[in-house]
Design a protein around this nucleic acid. Structure first.
Length: 212
DNA sequence: CACCAGGCAAGTA
DNA sequence: TACTTGCATGGT
Protein backbone atom coordinates (compact mmCIF):
# COMPACT_ATOMS: atom_id res chain seq x y z
CA UNK A 1 0.00 0.00 0.00
CA UNK A 2 1.51 3.27 -1.12
CA UNK A 3 1.46 6.17 1.26
CA UNK A 4 -1.39 8.51 0.53
CA UNK A 5 -0.85 12.08 -0.48
CA UNK A 6 -2.04 13.39 2.86
CA UNK A 7 0.53 11.39 4.76
CA UNK A 8 3.30 12.53 2.42
CA UNK A 9 2.23 16.08 3.08
CA UNK A 10 2.35 15.58 6.81
CA UNK A 11 5.73 13.97 6.54
CA UNK A 12 7.17 16.85 4.54
CA UNK A 13 5.60 19.43 6.78
CA UNK A 14 6.91 17.86 9.96
CA UNK A 15 10.37 17.59 8.45
CA UNK A 16 10.70 21.01 6.82
CA UNK A 17 8.05 23.14 8.49
CA UNK A 18 6.12 25.98 6.84
CA UNK A 19 7.82 27.46 3.78
CA UNK A 20 6.07 30.86 3.79
CA UNK A 21 5.37 31.03 0.07
CA UNK A 22 5.10 33.05 -2.09
CA UNK A 23 7.98 35.31 -0.95
CA UNK A 24 6.57 38.65 -2.15
CA UNK A 25 5.00 41.81 -0.77
CA UNK A 26 1.99 41.92 -3.07
CA UNK A 27 -0.11 39.98 -5.55
CA UNK A 28 1.48 42.03 -8.31
CA UNK A 29 4.95 41.04 -7.19
CA UNK A 30 3.88 37.39 -7.23
CA UNK A 31 2.78 37.72 -10.83
CA UNK A 32 6.04 39.35 -11.89
CA UNK A 33 8.02 36.72 -10.01
CA UNK A 34 6.01 33.94 -11.66
CA UNK A 35 7.27 35.05 -15.06
CA UNK A 36 10.82 35.71 -13.91
CA UNK A 37 11.25 32.32 -12.25
CA UNK A 38 10.49 30.30 -15.37
CA UNK A 39 13.22 27.68 -15.64
CA UNK A 40 15.39 29.86 -13.41
CA UNK A 41 16.91 29.67 -9.96
CA UNK A 42 14.96 31.78 -7.47
CA UNK A 43 18.12 33.48 -6.26
CA UNK A 44 18.54 35.03 -9.69
CA UNK A 45 14.93 36.16 -9.64
CA UNK A 46 15.55 37.92 -6.34
CA UNK A 47 18.32 39.96 -7.94
CA UNK A 48 16.00 41.02 -10.72
CA UNK A 49 13.21 41.89 -8.29
CA UNK A 50 15.68 43.89 -6.20
CA UNK A 51 16.69 45.88 -9.28
CA UNK A 52 13.05 46.79 -9.88
CA UNK A 53 12.38 47.63 -6.24
CA UNK A 54 15.49 49.74 -5.90
CA UNK A 55 14.16 52.07 -8.58
CA UNK A 56 10.61 51.90 -7.30
CA UNK A 57 9.58 50.32 -10.57
CA UNK A 58 7.86 47.26 -9.15
CA UNK A 59 4.50 48.84 -9.72
CA UNK A 60 1.90 48.29 -12.40
CA UNK A 61 1.86 51.83 -13.78
CA UNK A 62 5.63 52.23 -13.69
CA UNK A 63 6.26 48.95 -15.46
CA UNK A 64 3.51 49.62 -17.95
CA UNK A 65 5.27 52.80 -19.06
CA UNK A 66 8.79 51.43 -18.88
CA UNK A 67 10.15 50.59 -22.34
CA UNK A 68 10.63 46.87 -22.92
CA UNK A 69 14.35 47.31 -23.61
CA UNK A 70 14.91 49.07 -20.29
CA UNK A 71 12.87 46.49 -18.48
CA UNK A 72 15.00 43.77 -20.06
CA UNK A 73 18.20 45.28 -18.69
CA UNK A 74 16.75 45.55 -15.17
CA UNK A 75 15.72 41.91 -15.06
CA UNK A 76 18.92 40.68 -16.67
CA UNK A 77 20.08 38.58 -13.67
CA UNK A 78 16.99 36.38 -14.03
CA UNK A 79 18.19 35.11 -17.39
CA UNK A 80 16.19 34.91 -20.64
CA UNK A 81 15.79 38.62 -20.03
CA UNK A 82 14.66 39.66 -23.49
CA UNK A 83 11.91 37.11 -23.72
CA UNK A 84 10.89 37.65 -20.11
CA UNK A 85 10.63 41.40 -20.68
CA UNK A 86 8.27 40.67 -23.55
CA UNK A 87 6.28 38.23 -21.42
CA UNK A 88 5.98 40.76 -18.60
CA UNK A 89 4.70 43.31 -21.10
CA UNK A 90 2.11 40.81 -22.31
CA UNK A 91 1.01 40.23 -18.73
CA UNK A 92 0.82 43.97 -18.08
CA UNK A 93 -1.36 44.42 -21.15
CA UNK A 94 -3.61 41.69 -19.82
CA UNK A 95 -3.90 43.42 -16.45
CA UNK A 96 -4.51 46.77 -18.11
CA UNK A 97 -7.37 45.26 -20.08
CA UNK A 98 -8.95 43.32 -17.23
CA UNK A 99 -8.31 45.04 -13.92
CA UNK A 100 -5.57 47.67 -13.99
CA UNK A 101 -3.98 48.11 -10.58
CA UNK A 102 -6.86 46.39 -8.77
CA UNK A 103 -5.73 42.80 -9.16
CA UNK A 104 -8.43 41.46 -6.85
CA UNK A 105 -10.93 42.41 -9.55
CA UNK A 106 -9.79 39.34 -11.44
CA UNK A 107 -11.56 37.21 -8.85
CA UNK A 108 -14.97 38.38 -9.98
CA UNK A 109 -15.03 35.57 -12.53
CA UNK A 110 -14.80 31.87 -11.85
CA UNK A 111 -11.41 30.27 -11.60
CA UNK A 112 -11.74 28.07 -14.68
CA UNK A 113 -12.57 31.04 -16.88
CA UNK A 114 -9.77 33.12 -15.42
CA UNK A 115 -7.29 30.29 -15.94
CA UNK A 116 -8.21 30.11 -19.61
CA UNK A 117 -7.68 33.84 -19.96
CA UNK A 118 -4.32 33.71 -18.25
CA UNK A 119 -3.26 30.89 -20.57
CA UNK A 120 -4.11 33.06 -23.55
CA UNK A 121 -1.35 35.48 -22.53
CA UNK A 122 1.82 34.74 -24.50
CA UNK A 123 4.40 33.67 -21.97
CA UNK A 124 1.93 32.35 -19.41
CA UNK A 125 1.79 28.57 -19.49
CA UNK A 126 0.08 26.16 -17.13
CA UNK A 127 2.49 26.41 -14.22
CA UNK A 128 2.68 30.19 -14.39
CA UNK A 129 -1.09 30.53 -14.64
CA UNK A 130 -1.64 28.22 -11.70
CA UNK A 131 1.06 29.95 -9.64
CA UNK A 132 -0.77 33.21 -10.19
CA UNK A 133 -4.12 31.68 -9.27
CA UNK A 134 -2.80 30.06 -6.10
CA UNK A 135 -0.13 32.42 -4.85
CA UNK A 136 -1.42 35.77 -6.03
CA UNK A 137 -5.18 35.17 -5.87
CA UNK A 138 -5.41 32.45 -3.23
CA UNK A 139 -7.43 30.09 -5.42
CA UNK A 140 -7.31 26.37 -4.52
CA UNK A 141 -5.37 25.26 -7.61
CA UNK A 142 -2.48 22.82 -7.32
CA UNK A 143 0.74 24.00 -8.98
CA UNK A 144 2.75 21.34 -10.81
CA UNK A 145 6.39 21.91 -11.61
CA UNK A 146 9.38 19.88 -12.77
CA UNK A 147 10.08 18.69 -9.23
CA UNK A 148 6.52 17.50 -8.77
CA UNK A 149 6.64 15.34 -11.88
CA UNK A 150 10.12 14.05 -11.14
CA UNK A 151 9.46 13.11 -7.52
CA UNK A 152 6.00 11.62 -7.93
CA UNK A 153 6.84 9.69 -11.08
CA UNK A 154 9.93 8.24 -9.39
CA UNK A 155 7.71 7.03 -6.60
CA UNK A 156 5.23 5.51 -9.01
CA UNK A 157 2.26 7.82 -8.58
CA UNK A 158 2.25 8.98 -12.19
CA UNK A 159 4.02 7.88 -15.39
CA UNK A 160 7.39 9.40 -16.16
CA UNK A 161 5.97 11.25 -19.16
CA UNK A 162 2.82 12.38 -17.34
CA UNK A 163 1.16 15.50 -18.63
CA UNK A 164 0.69 18.57 -16.50
CA UNK A 165 -2.98 17.78 -16.15
CA UNK A 166 -2.29 14.20 -15.11
CA UNK A 167 0.05 15.33 -12.37
CA UNK A 168 -2.36 18.02 -11.23
CA UNK A 169 -5.22 15.55 -11.10
CA UNK A 170 -3.21 13.31 -8.80
CA UNK A 171 -3.38 16.00 -6.16
CA UNK A 172 -6.63 17.77 -6.90
CA UNK A 173 -8.47 14.48 -7.32
CA UNK A 174 -7.64 13.22 -3.85
CA UNK A 175 -7.02 16.26 -1.68
CA UNK A 176 -9.68 18.60 -0.41
CA UNK A 177 -9.57 21.90 -2.29
CA UNK A 178 -7.71 24.05 0.21
CA UNK A 179 -5.56 26.93 -0.99
CA UNK A 180 -3.51 26.98 2.20
CA UNK A 181 -2.64 23.29 1.93
CA UNK A 182 -1.95 23.53 -1.82
CA UNK A 183 0.29 26.50 -1.12
CA UNK A 184 2.34 24.67 1.46
CA UNK A 185 2.38 21.35 -0.36
CA UNK A 186 3.85 22.75 -3.56
CA UNK A 187 6.42 24.77 -1.63
CA UNK A 188 7.42 21.66 0.31
CA UNK A 189 7.81 19.69 -2.92
CA UNK A 190 10.18 22.34 -4.23
CA UNK A 191 12.08 22.28 -0.95
CA UNK A 192 12.35 18.49 -1.11
CA UNK A 193 13.40 18.58 -4.75
CA UNK A 194 16.15 21.11 -4.17
CA UNK A 195 17.62 19.17 -1.31
CA UNK A 196 17.08 15.54 -2.27
CA UNK A 197 15.80 14.92 -5.75
CA UNK A 198 18.45 15.86 -8.27
CA UNK A 199 17.77 15.64 -11.97
CA UNK A 200 20.55 13.26 -12.89
CA UNK A 201 20.26 10.73 -10.11
CA UNK A 202 17.77 7.93 -10.75
CA UNK A 203 16.79 8.13 -7.08
CA UNK A 204 17.92 10.33 -4.28
CA UNK A 205 20.34 8.81 -1.83
CA UNK A 206 18.48 9.74 1.31
CA UNK A 207 14.85 10.21 0.40
CA UNK A 208 12.71 11.54 3.26
CA UNK A 209 9.64 9.95 1.68
CA UNK A 210 11.09 6.46 2.15
CA UNK A 211 11.49 6.94 5.85
CA UNK A 212 8.93 6.23 8.50
C1' DC B 1 34.75 21.88 -17.56
C1' DA B 2 29.50 20.20 -17.21
C1' DC B 3 25.13 20.62 -15.24
C1' DC B 4 21.21 22.79 -13.20
C1' DA B 5 17.41 26.18 -11.99
C1' DG B 6 10.02 27.16 -9.03
C1' DG B 7 8.93 27.07 -18.39
C1' DC B 8 7.21 28.51 -22.63
C1' DA B 9 6.47 29.14 -27.49
C1' DA B 10 7.79 28.50 -32.12
C1' DG B 11 9.53 25.66 -35.58
C1' DT B 12 9.79 21.18 -37.90
C1' DA B 13 8.15 16.71 -39.72
C1' DT C 1 0.21 15.36 -32.88
C1' DA C 2 4.93 14.77 -31.14
C1' DC C 3 9.54 16.05 -30.88
C1' DT C 4 13.23 19.66 -31.02
C1' DT C 5 15.29 24.11 -30.24
C1' DG C 6 16.10 28.94 -28.47
C1' DC C 7 16.10 31.71 -24.70
C1' DA C 8 20.66 33.31 -20.64
C1' DT C 9 22.25 34.38 -16.00
C1' DG C 10 24.65 32.71 -11.90
C1' DG C 11 25.69 28.85 -8.55
C1' DT C 12 27.91 24.29 -7.67
Amino acid sequence: MKPRLESIYRKLYSRFGPQHWWPADSAFEVMVGAILTQNTNWQNVERAIANLKKRGDLDFKKLFRLPEKKLALLIKPAGYYNIKARRLKELLKFLDAHCGTDIKQLCRQNTRALRRKLLSVKGVGEETADSILLYALNKPVFVVDAYTKRIFSRHGFIPQDATYEQAQELFMGSLKADAQVFNEYHALIVRLGKEHCLKNKPRCADCPLEKK
